[in-house]
């Protein structure tokens, strides 16, 4: 399972990377916004995308839309981990086809549960 972690703050990327390693996912890569993430996704045979929303350059919601619009990537499970917590934003993300939504600050347990739930559904 190859996972791409996208967040503009390197500390948050490291937190998620460490939590994932703890859960047994050792194959992770990082990108700092949608513009760097998208080419990586297109070339990198990733199985899973974890992205922040608020990033300079291309935001997470735009990255999600770009992923869903891309034939190769359209089915990739996407988990949003973000401080954005307006109802309209969560609905927006759901409509854009997000698979899970975690609000910051979050716990290790929440990340574990949401990942499990997505894997269950995606199969």
């Amino acid at each position: 399972m190859k996972i791409l972690i996208v967040d503009d703050f390197s500390t948050m990327r490291r937190i998620i990377k460490n939590l994932l390693r703890d859960l047994g996912f050792n194959n992770t890569s990082e990108a700092d916004d949608g513009n760097t993430a998208l080419p990586m996704l297109k070339n990198g045979s990733f199985d899973f995308l974890i992205t922040d929303w608020n990033m300079p350059g291309m935001t997470g919601i735009d990255l999600l839309r770009a992923v869903r619009a891309d034939e190769q990537l359209a089915d990739m499970p996407v988990l949003m981990v973000t401080a954005e917590q307006k109802r309209e934003q969560i609905i927006e993300a759901a409509q854009a086809g997000v698979n899970g939504y975690i609000v910051k600050p979050f716990t290790a347990q929440t990340l574990k549960e949401k990942l499990e739930k997505i894997f269950e559904r995606v199969g």
């Binding site: 937190i15 460490n18 608020n54």
Partner: peptide
């Protein structure tokens, strides 16, 4: 150690 790891999320939140 895990608690210390999670406490570092302040950098992202305060940064924003």
């Amino acid at each position: 150690l895990n608690d210390i790891l999670m406490a570092q999320d302040f950098q992202d939140l305060t940064g924003q």
